[in-house]
Amino acid sequence: MKTRRYGIIDRQKRRMLIPFLLPALVLYGAITLYPGISTFYMSVMDWGGVGDPVFIGLDNFTRLVRDPTLIKAAGNTFFYVVVGGFILFPLAITFALATKSLRRGKLYRFLILAPIALSVTTAALLWKFAFNPNFGFVGDVFAALGLEALSSWEWLGEPSTALFIVVLASVWHGIGIWMLFFISAIERVPPELREAAILDGANAFQVFRHITFPLIWEMTRTLIILWIIQASQAFGFIIAMTNGGPLGATEVIGTYLYKQAFVQFEYGYAAAVAIVLSLVVVTLTVISRRIGRRGEGVEY
């Protein structure tokens, strides 16, 4: 094997790099590496927060497999990611395209983006009040439409609908940002390509299907991965709207982890859950990248 021999100047240049890299390396070690390693360490311990942690090997991980609440939480997390994604992406792309072509598009963009200015807690409470069966306006709207069965439905109290409503609230709150991402991607598509397609007789859907979408696919793929990471860590809306209820119907891994650590004070088990959550995020990300590669983006 041929190795490169560094000269004195090269070696001095390399030494010069060390002081410049050191602050970043120290920060990275302190805020990423050390907590990560500590989490692995803690996941093989039984520790309630006080006293000596007791080494228990892989017991926390074997417990994970038998924990029905965690299994349910994992299923709910998957639902959150998939259903949320299927609602978010088509809507965000639609809003991006529509506000680009509509008159007063900027006003509509502002209105769609406005909820992001609210804190998660405020937005969650708004939705919670709106869906309250006693004084929420959603029930009144259904009643006005003559849909009596829906007007008295406990949207957040029924295990069958609670998680869906939380997903809707979360999408409503954040969709403006995703719309902006897509607007920036769409604006990068050369207009002459669309114009040429229109001249060739393509309708709006065909222009989107064959021109716009392939050219924004790279961005879409990255955004899907971002969504998977963000949605897998869902927490704020659920805590504020349902606290994981009713009957665990909205418990996700993030809320379960929090409760294990800060309500039950089972730090070792919470660390094991955190590791599993990280693995879930990485796995979903890899899968989505693999799937995404099947339709490679078009270079232009």
Binding site: S38, T255, A261, S278, V281
Partner: peptide, 21 residues
């Protein structure tokens, strides 16, 4: 709760516990 925060909390707790003991 995001993973980074969980790691922080658990790691900080671990460090503190070790320090305490």
């Amino acid at each position: 709760m995001n993973t980074a925060r969980a790691r922080w909390a658990v790691a900080a707790g671990a460090a503190l516990a070790l320090g305490l003991t």
